[in-house]
Nucleic acid binder design. Structure first.
Length: 670
RNA sequence: GCCGGGGUGGCUUAGCCUGGUAGAGCGUCGGACUCAUAAUCCGAAGGUCGCGGGUUCAAACCCCGCCCCCGGCACCA
């Protein structure tokens, strides 16, 4: 028996999950945990909703709610999605619980004791009007190096130097430019991440052959670049409070606190189950193996930051971090702002969770980005899940049940080669599932089912039933044993269907009770129940009609209404492009000279990927000419040209506004 | 420009670390069967493995150079 801890990345409670989250993170974790549980190993699988952080406060403001309301709402949504998908945790909690907060403060205390925490007092920009400390990038002022007037607090766009907001001459809040900016002293806690560099390097370099390539490379690169100590507190209201004098108005930074959820969730699981020490079996037993399931954007948090914290607290380090790449939707990334997504709650309102589990397992982005499309979804359900697997099970059980309603018996297996195939598939899948190779496991499963179909065609029980009923019965028992094996093997992928098959086969109890090892045992007797088809055929046209129109009731991201006076402030003119240069210091930027009927303006613009010189030269375009000049990597832009951006396509999506008929240069637009 | 990933039959892809006749599924074409959700099974056509060079008896795989695509960053206000 092994002890397996499974930590699953915490979904952010700021919007529903989409299919990419399920395919890349939650489904593989669930398959893995079901496999190990079935195999008799002791599994603890935890996750929860990540409730803190600035984006949630922004959403709350927009919706006129409190951050807590927003976070709790999406926590509910996530919980429901996971439940409907059949993804089972020992503890699915969230980071806004007293238990989590206590554990975070406890770990912080340990790190402090071990001298991994420092304080640093700095003078930070403070906006007296909004009564908030400001992030550096929300501060503007004059660059001390090049005198550029609109340098940001973190970096000067003109000379490219990184800055501190304090260096700026005449700094002011970007959002309240008329307000005088103050610098107030504020103290923050820092985690000495840099202390762990050598230890981390040693750790990731030793016995990590089982890690996926991309995970190892990513991590090594990060470590090569060096680690900096990072602030773990911020001046904010929403988040975990710090038990320390002077920190009443500060909260713990999410990046530091959310990963601790793996540990706190383990402890609260034990507590809520009435066995307060049960978590220790996973966290204090050296032989326990810790797996973390997540997507590639989360790698550094789980291979560097979290391990550093764990080292600092003397806790168990990860054994494997099988991070996935991204699942794309029609070859483009899922995007919340563009509403380019299939949202899990929407999907589950209309379609079957098991069908989705199958398809997402088949296209899981294990080694590279992979693609989801409705066409592929329908094809895989109809051809593979139903045509191959569902059909084999259904034709076998229904034929046997109809012809032998009182039961079947055979003393020995009528086709040893088929029994051997079962054994081989079983051992292959055991190996590949242990190694987190889920796609491969599913393929082997489907091969076995196909082998069943082939065998049944050769045995042709519909013939032998008329000629040699005894032989027919023996063949059917052999085939039913393949179904029985499939029922067990498919359990991690399709738990609900797995149990249905088990029941149709008239077997006792549950698949979970029988266990993974039960595949090896054949049965000589079956008393079947009348089966129903396991999955429903889908119609592509219907689905496309429902899923593709994607029409919005209202314009998405509609900005607040403005008055006509507001509009009149803009001076938009038509001009002709008379000169084009490449920006000397930026790949994507052009320097355009635009003629407005005599006067010329220099415009810096990022059209390089959309238009070449020839297409632009001589073209009439619309330009806002009274926009305050701005510098882009050292070049002044005296206006902004107007262009449409098509957010529904991935490439070549910018289109210049161009007058329908030729007009005199300098004509105004209203 | 920098960092990472990728480019394999019409489509989706496995293989690449650990060189040795390029596999699968879908689609297409022909056939068989009829227990099964017009399901299944057999057979066929279809690939200069992005381009060029190198190492090797042998390269999809290792090395060098280049091209293209995706993502992140610099940043496109």
């Amino acid at each position: 028996m092994e002890r397996i801890f499974i930590g699953v990345a915490w979904p952010y409670a700021n919007g529903p999950m989409h299919l990419g989250h399920l395919a890349g993170v939650y489904l593989p974790a669930d398959i893995f945990s079901r496999f190990h549980r079935l195999n008799g190993n002791e599994v603890l699988m935890v996750s929860g909703s990540d409730m803190h952080g600035t984006p949630i406060t922004v959403t709350a403001q927009q919706q006129n709610k409190t951050p807590e309301e927003v976070a709790l709402h999406y926590h509910q949504v996530h919980s429901e999605t996971l439940k409907q998908m059949g993804i089972e945790f020992d503890n699915y909690t969230n980071t806004h619980t007293p238990e989590h907060a206590d554990v975070v403060r406890e770990l912080l205390g340990i790190l402090e004791q071990n001298d991994y925490i420092t304080t640093k007092t700095t003078e930070e920009p403070y906006d007296p009007k909004s009564k908030h400390f400001l992030p550096d990038r929300y501060v503007e002022g004059t660059c001390p190096h090049c005198q550029y007037e609109s340098a940001r607090g973190d970096q000067c766009d003109d000379c490219g130097r990184t800055l501190d907001a304090k260096d700026l001459i005449n700094p002011h809040p970007k959002l309240n430019p008329d307000t005088e900016l103050e610098f107030r002293e504020t103290e923050h806690l820092f985690f000495k991440l840099s202390n762990f560099r050598d230890e981390l390097l040693a750790w990731v370099s030793k016995d990590k052959e089982h890690w996926r390539d991309n995970v190892g490379k990513f991590t090594h690169n990060w470590l090569q670049d060096g680690l900096i100590d990072r602030a773990i507190t911020r001046d904010l209201d929403w988040g975990i409070e710090i038990d320390k004098e002077g920190y009443e108005n500060k909260r713990i930074y999410v990046w530091f606190e959310a990963v601790m959820g793996y540990y706190s969730a383990s402890r609260s699981w034990a507590k809520w189950n009435g066995e307060p020490d049960a978590w220790k079996k996973w966290w204090e037993d050296d032989d326990a193996r810790h797996y973390y399931f997540l997507a590639k954007d989360n790698i550094p948090f789980h291979t560097i930051i979290w391990p550093a914290i764990l080292m600092g607290c003397n806790l168990h380090l990860p054994y494997d971090v099988p991070a996935n790449e991204y699942l794309l939707l029609d070859f483009t990334q899922f995007s919340k702002s563009r509403n380019h997504a299939v949202w899990a709650p929407d999907y589950l309102n209309t379609y079957d969770s098991e069908a989705l589990r199958y398809v997402l397992s088949a296209v899981m982005p294990e080694n590279r980005d992979s693609n989801f499309s409705w066409e592929d979804y329908v094809a895989r359900i109809n051809n593979e899940l139903i045509g191959n697997l569902g059909n084999f099970i259904h034709r076998t059980i229904s034929f046997a049940q109809k012809n032998f309603p009182k039961g079947l018996h055979a003393d020995e297996c009528s086709a040893p080669e088929l029994r051997d195939k079962v054994a081989l598939s079983y051992s292959q899948i055991t190996t590949s599932l242990s190694a987190c190779k889920f796609k491969e496991s599913l393929q082997t499963l489907m091969e076995l089912s196909q082998t069943g179909n082939i065998a049944m065609n050769e045995m042709a029980p519909w013939k032998s039933i008329k000629e040699d009923k005894k032989a027919c019965e023996a063949d059917l028992v052999t085939l039913l044993n393949v179904c029985r094996a499939l029922s067990i093997i498919m359990n991690p992928f399709l738990p609900k269907s797995s149990q249905k098959v088990w029941d149709y086969l008239g077997l006792e109890g549950t698949v979970e009770e029988a266990g993974w090892g039960a595949v090896a045992q054949g049965q000589t007797d079956f008393k079947l129940n009348e089966p129903l088809p396991l999955f429903q055929k889908l119609n592509l046209e219907e689905i496309l009609e429902r899923e593709m129109p994607n029409e919005e009731e209202t314009l998405p991201d509609l900005k607040p209404e403005i008055t006509f006076e507001d509009f009149q402030k803009m001076d938009i003119r038509i001009g002709t492009v008379v000169g084009i240069e490449n920006h000397p210091n930026a790949d994507k930027l052009y320097l355009l000279d635009v003629d407005f009927g005599g006067p010329k303006r220099r415009i810096v613009t990022g059209l390089k990927e959309e238009y070449n010189d020839e297409e632009l030269m001589g073209k009439q375009i619309a330009v806002i000419v009274n926009l305050a000049p701005a510098k882009f990597r050292g070049e002044v832009s005296e206006g902004m040209l107007l262009a449409a951006e098509d957010e529904h396509v991935s490439t070549a999506n910018v289109s210049l506004l161009h007058p329908d008929k030729e007009v005199t240069d300098g004509s105004s637009v209203h």
